[in-house]
Write a protein that binds this DNA or RNA. Structure first.
Length: 569
RNA sequence: CGGGGCGUAGCGCAGCCCGGUUAGCGCGCCUGCCUUGGGAGCAGGAAGCCGGAGGUUCAAAUCCUCUCGCCCCGACCA
């Protein structure tokens, strides 16, 4: 491609409504443009990247024996009603009505459609296992689309579904897919982490998420370097060392005028936050509950919600706190709470002589002891896991990292096959429900995540396998015939060698070209300038480490081919 | 859906509070000269339904009402 002919509308300034680096850079580098909230045009460069990623996905899926299909975006409501998801999916499901008043969903995922297809076409146990996948545009009417293509309302996704006659076979494919996903992200040159995950509203039992690691990722992950355990913060159980029991001292009320927060009281009374009880009042489905946790810990509302088996959980407002405790917020303690149930985090189990609020303004208690001074209904795991917590699986210590969820694999079991009556005949001629698995990768989102992971102040730094071009050939003095001639010769040779190259032959000053090349993030840059050329030299510069070396024009092609090898994971 | 904010040239913004020439600035774009190793310089130029509708007024980008769009925080979520 000649740059002068390409539609690459780069922007010098950052658009005001782009919040995170990947969104800003995708706009600035001319990969995407917004059409409406959460709806984006992919420009030529953006599409090139997307296709390169999709092709890696295809190659790896095919290698694992999966077969590609293309299912419609439009799905009849009747199918969705059969699984109950027409109602259950809620307003996030985009619905349309045709001229005959027939209702359709714009597919946010395709379990219904694929299960319907398979139930019609696959009947015998001999035809299993079967894995089908597609790369398709999906729709979800997100409450709040944001971060460009990271969370759009129309977005690209690869979704795969596997079909089995028994659980063992599903397990086998599940772990194959786990490997396939790992290979995909490895081949893209991305740093990633597979984590144990909640299975969410799609349903099913076991599930892993694949996270592209990035400093400002949305998800907090805890991983054990020793045993490779990794999970979302919500899911990570927290274990504590059993404290040595102390002699219980008499309960003492102390004045703590104006000291409300853990930090304030800790400083005022000169006690560690870990020797304090934080009393949090929640409304779980309208019922007030007191949740206790150690002062140095934060409560995980998902864990509390799961323990209480409630569907809504909110922190109680000030009025409720006053009614229940008789004091302003900041002085709550686990005493005299009447019928309010009290649950405590495991961090408090076996701990003696703690500090807590006194349920009286400007007073706290010291030497508070569970059992003697207050009752606890249950000790359960309620805390957010943190860096350096013990690993739940081995003797290791967890470290904390952030990631962006780009892939998710589930075991669905018979949830959809049962609802849609998708059965097969086994060896005995008996009809049994098909057992299913489901495996998704957000394609556009992976691109954004790749940028989030690989950029600097000058722009994107593409890993070579998904870079829009492998090489940018920059003619610094395109008006000089010798520069132009040498450039064109190298350009043609690179194309002949199947190198994906863009030739920047624009009549622009070198600075402009350098800035654009860096912004686009093309891994290998060849500079051809008149001064160096007269010395019989051209220059190669690598985007990722800014390293730079000179060589003769004859050596360039083979050197570039070598570099492509080296830069491919 | 709750809270906050923004819509003025392709992009980034000023002007609005306190109504009054021809609506301005930077970047980009076009023409010419000049320059050519990290977003040059000079000169000239094109480009605006001031988001939309209604109202107040002699007069509205500016004040009022409604509306549409967009962004941020939260709940929710891949």
């Amino acid at each position: 491609m000649k740059w002068s002919r390409a539609l690459i509308p780069t922007m010098r300034e950052t658009p005001a409504d782009a919040e995170i680096p990947s969104h800003q850079l995708m706009l600035r580098a001319g990969l995407i443009r917004k059409l409406a909230a959460g709806v984006y045009n992919y420009l030529p460069l953006g599409l090139k990247v997307l296709r390169k990623f999709e092709n890696i996905v295809r190659a790896e899926m095919n290698l694992a024996g999966a077969q590609e299909v293309l299912l419609p975006t439009l799905a009849p409501a009747s199918l969705w009603r059969q699984t109950g998801r027409w109602e259950a999916y809620g307003p996030e499901l985009m619905r349309i009505t045709d001229r005959h008043k027939r209702e359709f969903a714009l597919g946010p995922t395709h379990e219904e459609v694929i299960t319907d297809l398979v139930r019609r076409e696959v009947k015998s146990y001999r035809q299993f296992p079967l894995t089908l996948y597609q790369i398709q545009t999906k729709f979800r009417d997100e409450i709040r689309p944001r971060f460009g293509v990271m969370r759009g309302r129309e977005f690209g996704m690869k979704d795969a579904y596997s079909f089995h006659t028994n659980q063992d076979d599903l397990d086998k494919t599940y772990w194959e897919m786990y490997e396939v996903y790992s290979n995909i992200f490895k081949r893209c040159g991305l740093k990633f982490q597979a984590v144990e995950a909640e299975s969410g509203p799609i349903g099913g039992s076991s599930s892993h998420e694949f996270m592209v690691l990035a400093g400002n990722g949305e998800d907090l992950i805890l991983a054990c370097p020793k045993c490779h355990y990794a999970a979302n913060r919500e899911k990570t159980p927290v274990g504590y060392l059993k404290p040595a029991s102390q002699e219980q001292l008499p309960l003492t009320k102390v004045a703590t005028p104006g000291q409300r927060t853990i930090a304030e009281v800790s400083a005022f009374l000169k006690v560690q936050p870990s020797a304090m009880i934080k009393t949090l009042l929640y409304q779980g489905d309208g019922q007030t509950v007191a949740a206790l946790i150690r002062g140095d810990r934060t409560l995980n509302e998902t864990k509390l919600k799961n323990h209480l088996k409630v569907s809504t959980l909110v922190l109680a407002n000030e009025t409720t706190v006053r009614e229940v405790t008789g004091a302003e917020t900041g002085y709550a303690g686990p005493f005299n709470l009447g019928k309010t149930p009290i649950v405590a985090d495991l961090s408090l189990a076996g701990r003696d002589n703690l500090v807590s609020g006194a349920n009286e303004n400007n007073f706290h208690y010291q030497n508070v002891n569970a059992g003697r001074d207050f009752r606890v209904e249950a000790y359960v795991d309620l805390a957010n896991a943190e860096e350096n917590d013990p690993c739940p699986k081995c003797e290791g210590t967890l470290s904390e990292m952030r990631g962006i969820e780009v892939g998710h694999i589930f075991k669905l079991g018979t949830k959809y096959s049962a609802a849609l009556n998708a059965t097969f005949l086994d060896e005995k001629g008996e009809a049994k429900p098909i057992i299913m698995g489901c495996y998704g990768i957000g394609t556009g989102r992976t691109i954004a995540a790749a940028i989030e992971q690989n950029h600097d102040e000058n722009g994107i730094i593409w890993p070579l396998p998904i870079a829009p071009y492998q090489v940018v050939l920059t003619s610094l003095d395109p008006k000089y015939p010798e520069v132009n001639k040498a450039s064109e010769r190298i350009y043609r040779e690179l194309i002949l060698k199947n190198v994906d190259v863009i030739w920047d032959e624009r009549d622009e000053r070198p600075g402009v070209k350098f800035k654009d090349a860096d912004l686009l993030g093309i891994p290998i840059r060849i500079n051809i300038g008149k001064r160096k050329l007269r010395e019989g030299k051209v220059e190669i510069r690598l985007r990722h480490d800014q390293s730079c070396f000179e060589l003769s024009p004859i050596e360039v092609i083979s050197r570039v081919q070598e570099l492509i090898q080296t830069l491919s994971p």
